[in-house]
Design a protein around this nucleic acid. Sequence first.
DNA 1: TTGTAAGCGTTATCAA
DNA 2: TTGATAACGCTTACAA
Lengths: 365, 365
Amino acid sequence: MRPAAPATIKDVARLAGCGIATASRVLNKSGPASTEMRERVERAARDLGFNFNAAGRALQSRKSMTIGCLVPSLANPVFAEAVQGVQSELLGSGYQLLISCSNYDDDADNAAITTLLENNVDGIIATMVAPNRSTALMQTKQRDIPVSLMFHDPIDGMVTAYVDNFVAAAEVARRFAAFGHTRVGFLALRFSTSDRSRNRYAGFYKQCRTSGLAQPSLIEISEEDAHHPERLAAILASYPDVTALFASNDFLAIAVQKATRHLGWQVPQDLSVVGFDGIEVGRLLETPLSTIETSPEAMGRQAAQSLLNALQGLGLKQRPPLPFSFREGETLAAPNPKRTDDDRVAAQPSSVHPAQDQNQSRTNP
Amino acid sequence: MRPAAPATIKDVARLAGCGIATASRVLNKSGPASTEMRERVERAARDLGFNFNAAGRALQSRKSMTIGCLVPSLANPVFAEAVQGVQSELLGSGYQLLISCSNYDDDADNAAITTLLENNVDGIIATMVAPNRSTALMQTKQRDIPVSLMFHDPIDGMVTAYVDNFVAAAEVARRFAAFGHTRVGFLALRFSTSDRSRNRYAGFYKQCRTSGLAQPSLIEISEEDAHHPERLAAILASYPDVTALFASNDFLAIAVQKATRHLGWQVPQDLSVVGFDGIEVGRLLETPLSTIETSPEAMGRQAAQSLLNALQGLGLKQRPPLPFSFREGETLAAPNPKRTDDDRVAAQPSSVHPAQDQNQSRTNP
DNA sequence: TTGTAAGCGTTATCAA
DNA sequence: TTGATAACGCTTACAA
């Protein structure tokens, strides 16, 4: 037996003994119908196991009831949680989620948006490498498709669900200062392609100056470095006078903790570390991570809410940044006055990462 | 200016000065066309910025070029990574990913499948609470829609991308035995709703008996317990003679490490812990987690490949289980002979979790 | 209150 | 090699 073709509204109408329009009106509760007709149609639909065909509907109504979501990667729990937030907010809304990942690639970002557009998504939620100069995103304006960003600080006229990275990062500098640190660093992955990372650095930098700290060292590392504790250790060792490090995300911060063990340093005695994001595992570490706690899920939810509002014709409105908080943890303490440069040099491995002064000057705000 | 309606194939045909059919043939390379015609059409399409409308296509071709994916939650990195694997495998295929989460709820599972079906997905990739008794999944058979499961051990006639949970868990028992443990436990979350968890327990149980260990204690805890180290500590303390614990996933294993600190126990000296999954952070812990290392991403990829094959008419074929490996880590060691029951009792908090003997007997394989 | 029919964008059939 | 034209399943004027 060949696969039974799903029942169409035509089948329902025939079984109910009425016109297609009537069936449609009843099933959609979109127009008048006598009680008797209503019952006949509903019964027929039930008996046939009728379901609307989304394609037919989309074609006619010019609404796909689908929302496109683009994130760099689902392997990063921060984005995965955000998507989870989007998903749960969309749950009862009738909208489906079409998903796409760019692997942090600008071209892939644009290609993905284009594909989503081809699929007639009614709205888009995205975190991109460069939303402000995405040609594909421009098309959404023309087609009047609402876009809601996640994680990005506000840019252009785009609506975004975010935490104020600048302000949050400044808080870290303030904490460093309060503990008496003077030489601090900012550790980043993919610094050049992440506006968030750059804004965090900017806020951190600004507050460092304001609080009278030395200009923070900007330490940009590769994915490779981050995955090899020895390599990361070597890099850390090349910044001997830094006593507190602000990592641009929690994974990096945890990797730093691991790397310090290679150097025989103690966190926070020999080096204070603060992360960003507030991922759950940070709490479970033997030395719980001090970090800026955010809620990616909340960002996803807010982005979805904004979009849903826009889709209901309520307008696309920018909301205030989402709250963050400083999670105390145990990786931030006063610098160890006993530790000398000599200790550091002694512990320093042979392979050394060159200090990247050019980077620092390039990226000063 | 009102939103410009996207160009249709009709517009292309008009601009190229040809019939719609010709335009379609050229654009799809689906039929003959003179070189000149080809050029005219392609040029017109380019000038208009023409893109196919997925809805029109889907309606006509009965193919949505969309694949539905259902997982319990994206907040769990294991599933998130799997979806990432699916996503990357689908990348060049022309298929889009429609995603849905059930939050580990059986009803939501079924509802989600139904919704995916309404959206005319061409295939489904899923991890569900109970795929074997999902009425919604039955519909896929009727409609001849291929389904590829992830994580589930093989059931019925369904194709699945998985690691052999039974065999992998047996390996843990073997390791415990090799280190001289005799009283061991299995710690599980959501045991009753996870076939994976149950299969792991079954394999673990079997090998424990084979290796001459005592019958393992089955310790089932709640989400709440898992998030509160004190509570988990109390539970652990109520199993004073267990010297090695197999946690049904890495997060649980990490939570155990954290909880033991509340009891003043050392891992692995006072308690050995082995996890399951092999998540990345496990490596970064001060005491790196010993665990069964799997690749959720590979599962996603394989599931997607299988589905893609089926969609190409190559048939839906079950592949052998994906490999796993035992990651040594540092949380597994020989039991500490010096530790006595008295020590344990002394360390035991006041609030005590009742041993759940009924669970153990209920779930014996 | 109901039904007929047009049309959404596409592909496929069939003549020309 | 081309181009009308008929579906595909649905919504919605417009008529009855």
